[in-house]
Design a protein around this nucleic acid. Sequence first.
DNA 1: GTCTATACTAAGATAGAC
DNA 2: GTCTATCTTAGTATAGAC
Lengths: 188, 188
Amino acid sequence: MTERRRQILLAAWDIAAESGLGAVTLHEVARRVGIRQPSLYAHVPSKAGLYDAMFAHAYGELLAEIDRLPPRGTAREQLVRLSRTILDYAVASPPRQQLLFQRTIPGFEPSAESYALAQRLIDRCVSLLSALGAGSPAHVDVYTAVVAGLGAQQIANEPGGDRWTRHLEPLLDLFLTGFHPVGEDRAD
Amino acid sequence: MTERRRQILLAAWDIAAESGLGAVTLHEVARRVGIRQPSLYAHVPSKAGLYDAMFAHAYGELLAEIDRLPPRGTAREQLVRLSRTILDYAVASPPRQQLLFQRTIPGFEPSAESYALAQRLIDRCVSLLSALGAGSPAHVDVYTAVVAGLGAQQIANEPGGDRWTRHLEPLLDLFLTGFHPVGEDRAD
DNA sequence: GTCTATACTAAGATAGAC
DNA sequence: GTCTATCTTAGTATAGAC
């Protein structure tokens, strides 16, 4: 990644943090970088390409953070730590949550290359869930819904706070201890 | 509500359902209603005013549906029925979910009048949760996160399906039976 | 890689006639 | 209440020179 490209991505995320993803325009990005808007096309192929680069950049950052987590403790402790990292990363920036975890940007679909990063994150969660006997598709779906739900409510109603996110640990505990989807056999 | 206004709201929701909330433009709404774009200003004060009318319209519809629910059964059964109604209504239309329950429309804030409708919905849930001993703020927050999470994941990953929403009942059961927020006394 | 200039498209909103 | 005409703003993208 060139230095210019790094500047561009940084500027784009700054704008998003200040005024929302919709406010990320090529004119404004160029202005902050100190070049003219048409010059951006030497670095990104299009507006959608910029969104895709932002998507990949953020997932790369999150995955790097996860790689630095200590692999200590039980699988349950590791899952809690991983979930906490993801949730905190998501709610730290509303536009980031919107771009990475919701699908509300009109016309934006991540490229296959970028989506592979998102898949790596899911895989991390699934492998820990499996180790805890909660690796069935139903379990994984409910797990993602619980984490996503806390993040969505936090951002929609109290951005910057922890009124919802602080319930992650007790809610995960409850889920791991007691959730049994209908129609699945239990192996107690 | 005049007939014209009804036509306008209907057209706006049609566009949203087909192409997303962002595709709702005054030009397109006017085209579908069969009038010219400036003529819309005789019926709505602005673009934001149209969003607000859509917001109020949908909440009114949902509240009416809820009022038709049979008041039979235990409080727990009633809560499950209410939650199912809300969740199904939300996921039936991605833009509706986005406008009513997420906050991702740039610049849109519901008017006080419209927001009061949203509050009535919350109040319904809270009164049933209270009857079940889960009326503390923490309980209410986690309840909304669980329902919102299922809806958000359903819409983001499988619009039109029920891969997430079908877990509502077991997840509510788990929540009502076993969730105890940290720092709150239990009265077992 | 960056520039100027510009094409193209599209949106919300207002003025004033009928 | 609806029309035509227009204003204003703003965005993505391209052409071609340096």
